[in-house]
């Protein structure tokens, strides 16, 4: 076993420090060391988006980032999306549109959609579908997810 590294970062606005082995991904650190289990492991190889978090404001697959790489970084996970006042509009619209079934992909979709709306507050349906191409859902067929995101942005879905 290699020596553990001491890492300081900010997660959901709170300063955190943790010890991790270099081989531990940011996903493993979030779930196993920081006990933030909202972020899910899907494929663990960068294809499915279930583990999406924001790293310094950029959408990333946390399975493809090492815990030791995030020294000094700002991380937002699904646990940091809602406010004390209540659910984020995306979360509310996912509920209203029933944009989930098994729920494993949902945290990743919400975080990815938040990254989209942060950059493009009024996206077209094409933009939403293109942006979310890196998130896989095997239950919904995507349409409800797309409608929920458009509704959260205040944009009417086509068709």
């Amino acid at each position: 076993m290699t020596k553990k590294a001491h890492v300081q970062a900010t997660v959901n606005g709170q300063p955190v420090e943790f010890l991790c082995e270099p081989r531990q991904s940011l996903l493993e650190v979030l779930r196993d060391e920081l006990r933030l289990t909202g972020t899910k492991e899907g494929c663990n190889n960068g294809n499915c988006g279930a583990c999406n978090v924001l790293l310094d404001g950029r959408l990333v697959n946390s399975c493809c980032v090492l815990g030791v790489e995030v020294e000094g970084c700002q991380i937002t996970t699904i646990e940091g999306i809602a406010s004390p006042q209540g659910l984020h509009p995306l979360q509310q619209k996912f509920l209203e549109h029933a944009a989930l079934q098994c729920g494993i992909c949902t945290p990743g979709f919400i975080v990815a959609a938040k990254a989209l709306l942060d950059r493009h507050p009024r996206p077209t349906e094409y933009q939403v579908r293109h942006w979310l191409a890196g998130n896989l859902c095997r239950c919904t067929g995507y349409d409800k997810i797309i409608r929920a995101v458009l509704d959260a942005a205040g944009v009417a879905a086509s068709g």
Partner: peptide, 9 residues
């Protein structure tokens, strides 16, 4: 290349 998540890194 990849999706937005990949292009970030």
């Amino acid at each position: 290349i990849g999706g937005i998540q990949i292009q970030s890194r």
